[in-house]
Simulated assay, not measured.
Amino acid sequence: LGMTEDVLRRASDPFFTTKTSGLGGLGLPMVNRFVREARGHLRLESEPGRGTVVTLRLPVDG
């Protein structure tokens, strides 16, 4: 469904969730940490009513 700018800004904050019950907000922060430790980049683009695009770029070691 997409995220508002406010939600998008906080999407990778640990324990941030828009859910009304239960524990949430750990998956994206874990992915973000992994990407940073791998010297990669995580990009989130979102628009309410249109959806969300997540781009994950990791370096190739060779």
Rank of each mutant, 00 (worst) to 15 (best):
K19I: 00
L56N: 08
R36H: 11
T52M: 11
S12C: 13
G49W: 08
T20C: 03
M3N: 08
F16A: 04
P59S: 04
G25M: 05
L26D: 12
G24C: 07
G51C: 09
P59G: 03
T52L: 09
K19F: 02
E45C: 07
E5W: 06
T55I: 05
M3L: 15
A38G: 00
R50H: 12
P48T: 08
R9P: 00
V60Y: 11
D6G: 00
A38P: 00
T55D: 07
T52E: 00
P48R: 13
R36K: 15
R43K: 13
G24D: 09
S12G: 06
T55R: 08
L44M: 15
T52D: 01
G40Y: 11
S21W: 09
M3F: 13
M3Y: 15
E37Q: 13
D13G: 01
D6M: 01
D61G: 10
K19T: 04
P48A: 06
E37H: 12
R43V: 12
L56I: 15
T20Y: 02
G2I: 01
E47Q: 09
F15W: 02
P29S: 06
S21G: 03
V7F: 01
K19S: 10
L28I: 15
D6E: 07
G62E: 14
L58I: 05
R10L: 04
G51T: 11
G25P: 04
L28Q: 08
G49I: 13
G2H: 01
K19V: 02
S21E: 11
R9L: 05
G27V: 12
R10P: 03
L28N: 08
V35F: 03
R36T: 10
G62A: 12
S46Y: 02
R10T: 02
T18I: 13
E37Y: 10
V7H: 02
L28F: 14
V53H: 09
L8R: 02
G24I: 05
L8W: 01
A11V: 14
D13F: 11
R57A: 15
L58G: 04
R10F: 02
R43L: 12
T52I: 13
E47V: 05
E45I: 10
V31N: 04
